[in-house]
Computed example of a mutant assay.
Amino acid sequence: MTDIEIAVLSGDGIGPETVEATLTVTREVLARAGVAMQERWSAIGLAALEQVGTTFPEEALETARKADGTLLGAVSHLDYPSPESGGVNPSGTLRRELDLYANVRPARTYPGLATKIGEEFDLVIVRENTEGFYADRTMHVGTGEVMPTPDLALAHRKVTREGSMRIAREAFRIAATRRRKVTAVHKSNVLRVSDGLFLECVRQVAREHPDVEYEEELIDAMTALLIRRPADYDVIVTTNMFGDILSDEATELSGSLGLAASLNSGYQHAMAQAQHGSAPSLAGRDVANPSSLIGSMGMLLSWLGEKRGDDRLVAASRSIEVALRDTVADPSTRTADLGGELGGRAFTRAVLANLA
């Protein structure tokens, strides 16, 4: 009997190898937990373009829609042709079509792993995922970028009350399980209307949670403060583009972007996706660090476990988190981006050996 069904979309570049590493760990941890997983594979990306003329077939979207969760490998969307020629970004499309409004990106230091700043920290960036400046998420028809003349480009930013309220509520929900502090990051001194609406909504949610400390920072100041004193922050909530930038900065400070787990979630669906890109130059060389996607899958299992009240899935998520921590902590079991010598497959075997 199947307990969970996972849509598997392996992607481009290093996507397929990090997906395989992730499934290797997931299959083992779920088997130990007594959870039966059914994998539903669909071709996407450049392979699908060659086979069926589009990088994201409708069948792949339906597979993800019907599954309990989705595992998405990295995609080379910058190498895709125009949408008219079949080049559809699977990541953006899934976020929009499945209404994955929250992009949750933890960033933390690891025992024994030197950081860029020499300070320990543990924070979460909660990024609005369906609006903002992202051109594929701002219009019902067309994109949020237009070019009236060859010398004029315009971009539209979308910020709604509904989108701001729900991402704020998610941030405060997460903070209630951690150190009870939320920092809203914005640029309302310049973007007075759009970020003004965002802040109005976050402040309203903050008033509903008097037991959670609340503060605000301008985005330009926050990029500096995150480097200067990251340990001061617990949960950071912000709009789409600001969150994308800050999360890359935070995870690089923790040791490597290769460690950066990421979960896209909504009311009904969730998707595990590494924070990094497809790195085509590393593909097939067994040098990519699969930690990010493995950790993202752990977050997906936790989301499913909490949604269903299934302690087995929550425990499996915790096992993955601890195994990754212990593997990264040992200099002999690190990948090249962390100063080690292991390839992706050997690192995956080390994670398996560290599963509780």
Score class of each variant (00 low, 15 high):
Ala336Asn: 05
Val19Pro: 12
Arg318Asp: 14
Glu200Arg: 15
Lys187Ser: 10
Ser85Arg: 15
Arg345Glu: 14
Leu218Pro: 06
Asp136Gln: 12
Leu218Cys: 05
Leu338Phe: 12
Ser254Tyr: 02
Leu113Lys: 13
Leu98Ile: 04
Ala64Pro: 01
Gln273Phe: 00
Pro16Asp: 02
Val212Pro: 01
Gly258Asn: 12
Ser317Glu: 10
Asn89Leu: 05
Thr143Glu: 14
Ala270His: 01
Val159Met: 13
Ala60Gly: 08
Pro210Val: 02
Ser278Asp: 00
Ala21Glu: 06
Ile320Thr: 07
Gly92Leu: 15
Ala102Phe: 08
Val104Pro: 10
Val212Met: 09
Ile117Asn: 04
Phe198Cys: 09
Ala288Ile: 11
Asn354Thr: 02
Tyr267His: 13
Thr115Phe: 11
Thr54Asn: 05
Met139Tyr: 07
Arg345Thr: 11
Leu324Thr: 08
Leu61Lys: 00
Leu191Arg: 09
Gly298Trp: 04
Gln204Asn: 11
Ala114Met: 05
Gly163Thr: 11
Ser278His: 06
Glu215Cys: 14
Arg161Met: 06
Thr55Pro: 02
Asp220Ser: 00
Leu293Ser: 07
His140Thr: 14
Met299Trp: 06
His276Val: 00
Ala272Pro: 06
Glu216Leu: 06
Ile167Gln: 09
Gly258His: 07
Ser85Leu: 15
Gly53Thr: 07
Glu213Met: 09
Val104Cys: 13
Arg105Trp: 08
Met165Tyr: 12
Thr183Ile: 13
Ile294Thr: 01
Ala114Cys: 02
Leu199Tyr: 08
Arg166Thr: 01
Arg105Thr: 03
Ala350Lys: 01
Val126His: 02
Asn240Arg: 03
Val104Thr: 13
Ser317Lys: 11
Ile4Asn: 04
Gly132Trp: 10
Ala206Cys: 06
Arg169Ala: 15
Lys116Gln: 14
Arg312Met: 00
Glu119Ile: 12
Val8Glu: 08
Gln268Ser: 10
Thr160Cys: 09
Val25Thr: 01
Ala47Met: 07
Val182Ser: 01
Ala74Glu: 00
Thr183Lys: 03
Ala175Val: 08
Asp220Ala: 02
